[in-house]
């Protein structure tokens, strides 16, 4: 399963059970649309750390980083580049 599909599956299963993972637009604002709230971000962070083996710093608990599928994927990619360097 791709990273994007893993992410979509988690978000739909946890926060939007009425949506199908494939129907979740990559640029949909997950926060403004009410899909992810403040507690949801904490759940998402725990998922990302566990599933993708990354550490998310306190400063990175920033709404903009988790606003869309695209931005979350960018965060993961940035972490992986950082850890590979």
């Amino acid at each position: 399963m791709t990273q994007s599909a893993t992410l979509r599956d988690f978000i739909c299963a946890e926060f939007a059970p009425d949506l199908k993972p494939g129907e979740l637009p990559a640029d949909l604002d997950l926060i403004d649309s009410g899909i992810i709230d403040s507690l949801g971000v904490l759940k998402l962070v725990a998922f990302l750390e566990g599933r993708f083996d990354i550490a998310i710093a306190p400063e990175e608990l920033d709404a903009d980083l988790y606003r869309t599928i695209d931005s979350i994927e960018a965060l993961i990619a940035g972490k992986r580049i950082g850890s590979a360097a």
Binding site: L42, K43, V45, A46, E49, A55, I56, A57, P58, L61
Partner: peptide, 8 residues
């Protein structure tokens, strides 16, 4: 110390 989420 590790900087992780650790909410649970």
């Amino acid at each position: 110390a590790g900087g992780g989420g650790a909410s649970l």
